[in-house]
Computed example of a mutant assay.
Amino acid sequence: MSEWRLYGVRIRIHLLFWAVIGLSLLMGMFTEMLTLFIIVCIHELGHVAVARELGWTVTEVQLLPFGGVATMEEAYATDPLDEIVVALAGPFLNVLMMAFSWFCWYTGFWTEEWAVFFLKSNLIIAGFNLLPIWPLDGGRIVQAVLCWYLPYRSAAVSSLATSTLLAALMLGVASLSLHLNIALVALYLLAINIETFLRFPYQFIRFLMEKYRRHHHGEKQEVRALTVSPTAKAIEVSHLLCRGCTHLVYVKGTGVLPEEQLLHAVLFEKKHDTNVNQLF
C-alpha cells in the first residue's frame, strides 16, 4: 500500500486500487480508470472539507476501488448530526458532478457517450457508498442515527453486527451470481467489519477518551440525566453513555456523579469494577 502526505493528511492507495489500474491498462481503459480515480478523490475531498470546517482533525484518507475511507480523530464522541453531514458530503459532490456532466453534454462540450459514462460512474460510486455497511458512508449514517436513540456502545455494536451480516450476504449473492469484482469488494468489507468488531473494545476506549478530552477543554454540549443503581459498576455505567452529549449520573440514594468524574475513574484510576456509589 503506497502513501504520501498532503496538508498533514496521510493519503494511502490500497493495493486493490493499483490492481484495478493495472487491469485497466491491459484492457485499454486507462482513461476511464483515471476518471474514476479523480471522482473518488473528489468524493473524499468532500468529506475532508466538511470535517475540517467542523473543526475535526483528519488523519488519513485511504483510496479504494469503490471509494475511500477518511479517518477523523473526533468521529467518536461528536454530535451524531455532524457525522451525518460529513458522511453525506461525499455523495453530495457526486450529485454535483452528475449535474456537471449533464451540463457539459447539454452545451455540447462533451459527447453523449462520455457524459453518460461520467454520470453513471458518479451514480454508482455515490449509491455504493450509501449502502448501510460500515465503513461506507451509509454505514456511518446508520450508526449516527442509532446514536440518537441508543448509548454509543449499543449503537456501534448493533451497526457493526448488521454491517457484518450484510457484507456476508453481499459476498454470498455475488459469489453465486459469479460477479467476481463485487465478491472481492464484499470480501474486503466483510474483513474490515470483522476486524473492527474485534477491535471495538479499543474503539470504545477512544470514545471515552474523546468525551473526557471535551470535558477537559470545557466544550459545551447538551446535558442529559442518567439514573443508575448505586451498586452498578463504573464500567457498566460507561456503557450507557451517549454520543454528542454530557451526562449527569444520578446514583439512586446517593447523589449526582459528574460524567467527568466517572470517566476519570474508568480511564485513569482503573476502577472498572467499583460501585458508582463509591466514586463520590
Rank of each mutant, 00 (worst) to 15 (best):
R214S: 05
M209G: 02
V256L: 10
E260W: 06
P65E: 09
H247D: 10
S24F: 01
E222G: 13
G244L: 05
A77D: 13
T57I: 08
M72L: 07
M33C: 08
R12S: 06
S175A: 12
L16A: 02
E3S: 13
Y76T: 14
W134E: 01
V58H: 08
G55T: 06
F117P: 00
L263M: 05
R213T: 12
I38D: 03
M97N: 11
N275W: 15
G244Y: 04
F128G: 07
H272W: 15
F197H: 03
I42F: 08
M1F: 14
R206S: 11
M170F: 15
N181Y: 14
F280W: 15
V61F: 02
A144V: 07
F128H: 00
R224I: 14
R214I: 08
L81K: 12
C147F: 07
I124R: 05
L150C: 10
K220S: 14
F103R: 00
H215R: 04
L198D: 07
C147M: 08
E195W: 14
T231I: 13
N275S: 10
Q143D: 05
V58F: 09
N275M: 11
V157C: 02
L93C: 07
T254Y: 15
E83T: 13
F200H: 01
M72K: 04
L241A: 04
V185P: 07
V9Q: 06
A99Y: 01
V40W: 00
Q261W: 10
L34N: 06
L226R: 02
M170T: 13
T59Y: 09
L178W: 08
E236G: 03
L160V: 06
V237P: 02
M33E: 13
Q62K: 15
N94R: 02
P91G: 03
F92Y: 04
V50E: 03
P91R: 02
T31A: 13
L54S: 10
H216I: 15
V58T: 00
V69Y: 07
D79T: 13
E73Y: 04
F100G: 01
G253I: 00
A89C: 12
S229P: 05
M1I: 02
L146M: 13
G55N: 08
I205W: 02
L171K: 06
F17G: 03
S121D: 05
Q143N: 03
F92T: 11
E73A: 13
L279N: 00
S229E: 10
A87T: 14
E60T: 08
M98P: 08
G172M: 11
